[in-house]
């Protein structure tokens, strides 16, 4: 069992989301960065789809109630505190073995989000095939909501796992966010399209798992067509522009249909980068072809394979049993010392 001691900012349980139900109005949901989730799971010895904690802005403080392998994926500080109050730093992109009663404290997420995977995956009941939390309808995860102090998270009893680490941190691409034009490109003036590709957009404070509202030049609609369409399907990455001309990039928890024209749609390979942008940061967009988008997906898939192939055991000198044994011996020595 894991006890949540503090969770001041949104931390939710996510996996690959809930495909197959969008015709019923059920959003996809799932990790904003499925690749980082996949890596964190691999480090903890899990299949890619195991449920993890997705942390936003600042991570929680957790206490484990049994020996447990956890893995950290992201760019944030983490400290493990033993029962006697000793603190040791815990590296990112590495699995760590926690002893019963130890506390892990996660700091500021420098790229907005990060992942904590637990050996065996978090054991909440799947809802429509997924453990992902969809807060707006209170579905999935832990009672359909983000974590709060006092919660307990169930874990798989004693699932042998190997702790792994990465030799090099995965990097997030810099450069413009690549998009495919449309599907409602004709609703915008030529000047709006030029501004969309030429200008810098700032992420506003209205940024969550449903989408990012951007500030920048006003993207004007063709006055003969206006700013409303009869709703059609949307998807994470679609860039809607309502009547105020300020674009909204949709993310994992977006609704299934929408009534604003979509000037462009972010390509699949770049979508996860949007999970990492923080209010105040700026974005640029670049239009690419469908062939470019497909090539980018292939490149991302092979980069992920490469990254996973370069995993190494986190503690090469010991196997897990030996490490657990070492902790027990430490305990005996401590007990002797107390006499």
């Amino acid at each position: 069992m894991i006890e949540v001691l503090a969770a001041p900012l949104p931390t939710s349980i996510q996996d690959f989301g809930r495909p197959g139900y969008r015709h019923l109005g059920m959003p996809l949901s799932g990790a904003l960065d499925p690749e980082w989730m996949h890596i964190a799971n691999a480090l903890a010895g899990n299949p890619p789809s195991a449920a993890v904690l997705e942390m936003r802005l600042v991570g929680p403080r957790l206490r484990v109630h049994r020996s447990l392998v956890i893995a950290l994926g992201g760019d944030f500080g983490a400290v493990i505190e033993t029962q006697d109050g000793t603190r040791r730093p815990a590296a990112n992109w590495c699995a760590h073995i926690l002893a019963p009663g130890e506390i892990i404290e996660l700091g500021t997420l420098r790229s907005g989000i990060g992942y904590l995977a637990v050996e065996g995956g978090l054991q909440v009941p799947p809802v429509l095939g997924s453990r992902s939390t969809y807060v707006r309808a209170g579905i999935g995860g832990l009672d359909g909501r983000c974590l709060r102090a006092g919660d307990t998270l169930e874990i798989d009893p004693a699932k042998p796992s190997t702790a792994q680490r990465l030799s090099a941190r995965p990097q997030l691409d810099a450069g413009p966010i690549r998009v495919i034009a449309g599907p409602q490109g004709e609703y915008f003036t030529a000047a709006a399209w030029a501004d969309f590709l030429g200008a810098e957009f700032t992420v506003t404070r209205e940024a969550d798992r449903m989408g990012l509202r951007l500030d920048g030049p006003r993207l004007a609609h063709d006055p003969t067509l206006g700013a409303d369409i009869v709703s059609d399907a949307v998807t994470p990455g679609a860039i809607q522009v309502p009547g105020d001309g300020k674009p909204i990039v949709l993310l994992a928890d977006c609704q299934t249909v929408g009534g604003y024209p979509k000037i462009a749609t972010v390509i699949g390979a770049d979508l996860r980068r949007l999970g990492h942008v923080l209010p105040g940061q700026t974005l640029r967009f670049a239009a690419v072809s469908l062939d470019d988008a497909l090539a980018a997906r292939h490149a991302a898939a092979s980069a992920l394979d490469h990254c996973l192939a370069a995993m190494r055991p986190a503690a090469r000198e010991f196997n897990l049993d030996a490490l657990y044994g070492a902790n027990l011996i430490d305990g005996v020595i401590d007990a002797g010392h107390a006499d």
Partner: peptide, 22 residues
């Protein structure tokens, strides 16, 4: 094909382009 979403006036097919050619 992962999702097929009908609306009043359109049908959208969500798919995995690594498995299904556009």
């Amino acid at each position: 094909v992962t999702d097929v979403v009908p609306t009043w006036r359109s049908l959208t097919v969500h798919f995995d382009p690594l498995r299904l050619d556009r």
